[in-house]
Simulated scan of single mutants.
Amino acid sequence: MTMTALDAGVLLAAYLLGSLSGSLLLGRLRGVDIRRHGSGNAGGTNALRTLGWRFALGVVAIDLGKGALAAGLGLRLAPGWAYPAAALAVVGHVWPLWHGFRGGKGAAAAVGALLVLWPLAVPPLLLVWLAVLVASGYVGLATVLAALGLPLLAWWQQTDGMRMGFAVVMALFLLFTHRGNLQRLRRGTESRFERARLWHRWRSRA
């Protein structure tokens, strides 16, 4: 696949869009650098734990939006490069140019891209994420297992090579960005979102 100057420009724009971190942009409005609070991660989960649900909702909206925008830009201007553009938006979220290359873990940006490029993949992945979260209370574990379900879904649906490649790359990339969560899980030190453990609370009352 030959790359034109327009294609290269779209890929660069996708990375730069990904570099716009929702938590860090909104944090500046409040005079807060979220990377100095909680887990130190510039993502929605840490935003929820440290600054509340309203702030976290804004963070997630921005991070979903930039993934969707990057994917949409790719589809419109460089259709053959839409999936690489989406992947670069996720990379930009993790290593943002505008924020010293210290960002989040990329899940929300990836979901935003999927909403544009492969919307039917989002409901089953969200179902896996919610099921694991409700059962365990571990957001990181829920995200990893949902991400690992992406290539399985692509295989089951017999998708084309570009979509399959994106699914595999995203699954491995999110596994990499959540490696700290998995290490803490093995050590038994991972933070648990107790309010989300609805299954445990239901069993305790039964």
Score class of each variant (00 low, 15 high):
residue 174 L to C: 03
residue 113 A to H: 09
residue 91 V to E: 01
residue 169 V to L: 15
residue 115 L to V: 14
residue 116 V to G: 10
residue 179 R to V: 13
residue 192 R to W: 01
residue 172 L to I: 04
residue 180 G to Y: 00
residue 168 V to L: 15
residue 133 L to I: 07
residue 114 L to P: 10
residue 168 V to H: 01
residue 161 G to S: 15
residue 140 G to W: 05
residue 187 R to H: 14
residue 173 F to Y: 15
residue 156 W to H: 13
residue 173 F to V: 06
residue 142 A to S: 15
residue 174 L to W: 01
residue 86 A to P: 05
residue 189 T to W: 08
residue 152 L to I: 05
residue 91 V to M: 12
residue 157 Q to K: 09
residue 192 R to C: 14
residue 165 G to V: 07
residue 133 L to H: 04
residue 121 A to W: 04
residue 86 A to I: 09
residue 143 T to A: 11
residue 124 P to D: 09
residue 160 D to Q: 12
residue 175 L to R: 03
residue 117 L to H: 09
residue 159 T to D: 10
residue 167 A to D: 05
residue 149 G to P: 09
residue 99 H to A: 15
residue 184 R to M: 14
residue 138 Y to F: 15
residue 119 P to A: 14
residue 146 A to R: 03
residue 124 P to E: 12
residue 99 H to L: 11
residue 129 W to E: 02
residue 165 G to K: 04
residue 133 L to W: 07
residue 131 A to M: 10
residue 149 G to Y: 07
residue 168 V to S: 01
residue 152 L to M: 14
residue 145 L to E: 04
residue 124 P to I: 11
residue 139 V to I: 14
residue 187 R to W: 05
residue 118 W to T: 02
residue 133 L to Y: 04
residue 140 G to H: 04
residue 175 L to A: 14
residue 95 W to Q: 02
residue 98 W to I: 02
residue 84 P to D: 12
residue 137 G to E: 08
residue 181 N to R: 10
residue 127 L to I: 12
